[in-house]
């Protein structure tokens, strides 16, 4: 098993932490993991992306030119990474803020309305988990149990009461993939 993924969007959108959650989930399943951010000088705004690789074997390069899956959350990221998806790979994009949808036909394209789903859940902080749910629906590289286990390991105990909400958001995200 090997999954090579890029998640890209605006800084502050939770791109890096989404990648981190995915990476921790891989750790929970004893997979080899790399998480490589494109770090910038700014804490908020600008574009951010993170490359996450999960594998059963030793990972060579943490940086790639072709991905099994690209998850893009703004137009700039779509423009940059649509061409980098391997033929037969998957591209997930959030419809919010994307005015020129992807055009490739040799990959599977999934449009999700994650931003809208957060409004339905009445909690904008669920965005990450909704998108992650969608990712796992398209490529079940880790189980939801592992995601929650990873969250529990990384979250301080005072935030554990949020775990059910996260689980709900993950499941909500899964329903967005049609």
């Amino acid at each position: 098993m090997k999954a090579e993924i890029i998640i890209a969007g605006f800084g502050g959108q939770g791109v890096l932490s989404m990648g981190k959650t995915l990476a921790y989930s891989g750790l929970m399943e004893d997979k080899e993991v790399t998480w490589l951010p494109s770090y910038g000088p700014e804490q908020r705004g600008g574009t951010a992306n993170v490359t996450v690789i999960l594998s059963d074997e030793r990972i060579s390069s943490p940086t790639l030119d072709a991905y099994d899956m690209a998850v893009v959350l703004n137009q700039q990221s779509l423009d940059k990474f649509e061409s980098k998806v391997k033929p037969g790979g998957a591209l997930i994009y959030d419809s919010y803020g994307i005015h020129q949808p992807p055009t490739r036909t040799d990959i599977k394209v999934y449009r999700i309305d994650a931003t809208e789903a957060t409004i339905e859940m009445n909690n904008s902080k669920t965005f990450n988990m909704i998108v992650l749910g969608a990712i796992l629906k398209v490529n079940p590289m880790v189980t939801i149990e592992s995601v929650l286990k990873g969250l529990k390991k990384t979250l301080p105990e005072r935030h554990w009461h949020l775990l059910p909400l996260n689980e709900e958001a993950l499941k909500k995200g899964m329903t967005l993939i049609k």
Partner: peptide, 10 residues
């Protein structure tokens, strides 16, 4: 370098 410093791994 920045890559090894910023990257997360096991």
């Amino acid at each position: 370098d920045g890559l090894v410093g910023q990257m997360m791994e096991k």
